[in-house]
Design a protein around this nucleic acid. Structure first.
Lengths: 216, 216
DNA sequence: ATCGTCATTCTTGTATACACGAATGTTGAC
DNA sequence: GTCAACATTCGTGTATACAAGAATGACGAT
């Protein structure tokens, strides 16, 4: 239970949305939520406000809050932006790499290698996140790091779906290898290019995503 | 006065912060704000919550809200990300340009030409905004458009400072010309490259910015 | 004189009460 | 039977009251 009820509720409701417990399009009734969590409406409203700012729900004045349904097209757009930001992070990381960042990338990369080798999709999902976060941090740009982390978080559920696709694990890891090489070689342009294609969802990978979304 | 007091207050306080009426580092007392705007603390808290999510203030639990002081370095980082996003918008615009977007860009571009020719810095400041927004819209990516608009808004005060620098008006406009040419020619890579350097603040332009910030 | 401890005060965090607009169901007319 | 107007209900928006933690100042000890 976080420092105050409002933030705790924000996380709680956010998780519920990201895990599809609250379905896209569903209306979130303040009183119902307040009862469910055993608090008053005030912190519930604060939590909803924050979720609105993050973009997970939409608060229509006097008409309540509904869970936003991004839809395949918008998700594609979000990945498109994510790819661009990660590309920037990679190119900066290649230029500014220091010892600590290098070690962090190496560590998370080898953890990815283990889980990919073991074919453990869930473990890879987690290690992959850490790997990407290490690259954000290596960019040495706090603002970029924050933006990347925020968008990464919002795309989390779809990324998870992606990993389920056959062979994606080993493909993803070999792409990681090339990315690490480029960054460690100080080749910013190459790191940018590789990360862009690694993160972006083009062609059949997009159809795969849509298919797995439709499957739920 | 917007649809509800909370959002109105958000805009009101946001403007006060962006216009330096509330100085960076300053503490924002809920009761004081409530009295000042003649409302209760409830909508004030809602507004502060939203500003926290936007990143303009920081709410420290049980210790009140303070206006964030980005500092030159972080502002540089924000421009760096802005440059990247605008570059993406430009490259997408070049690929996806349709009649309506083409006309919107042409219209705003020629308005920039007028105000730049007249040496009217304030008018150019406004027309320039519209020009960039036209490019965001031309990208045909709603998410990217929103992200660009949000960051653009947050960088507004510093952009204004930049334009004060000698000769920046005509330099900016000639860069616009090249950008328009690249987009209309369908040359996405060129548009991206030009926008990145147009938006970014490298070298002496960064020192200029820091200098004008220190001058206040 | 300085530092630590305790009490007081002030501000934030949460709950509750009230007001107002939107949604909905009912009744009547065509 | 269908549609429209009105009344009622329900939920959001705002204000106020209360609780609890943090900042501040005074007092005492070293």
């Amino acid at each position: 239970m976080s420092e105050n009820v409002g933030r705790w509720l924000r996380d709680e409701i956010e998780n519920a949305i990201l895990s599809y417990e609250f379905a896209p399009g569903e209306r979130l009734d303040e009183t119902v939520l307040a009862n469910r969590f055993g608090v008053s409406r005030t912190p519930v409203r604060e939590a909803l406000m924050q979720l609105d700012a993050i973009g997970l729900i939409e608060i229509r004045p006097r008409r309540g809050a509904i869970v936003i349904d991004p839809g395949p097209h918008r998700i594609y757009e979000m990945f498109e932006v994510m790819a661009e930001l990660e590309g920037l992070a990679g190119s900066l990381a290649a230029r500014r790499l220091d010892k600590a960042s290098r070690e962090a990338i190496t560590a998370t990369h080898s953890r990815c290698e283990q889980s990919a080798g073991a074919g453990d999709s869930d473990a890879y999902y987690y290690d992959n996140e850490e790997f990407h976060k290490a690259i954000y941090a290596a960019s040495r740009s706090d603002f970029l790091e924050e933006q990347c982390a925020q968008l990464h978080r919002r795309l989390r559920p779809y990324r998870r779906l992606q990993l389920r696709v056959r062979n994606r694990l080993s493909t993803s890891f070999s792409e990681h290898c090339a990315i690490v090489d480029a960054i460690f070689a100080g080749n910013g342009d190459e790191a940018r290019r590789l990360l862009r294609t690694h993160v972006g969802i083009q062609g059949e990978r997009f159809s795969d995503l849509v298919a797995s979304m439709a499957a739920r």
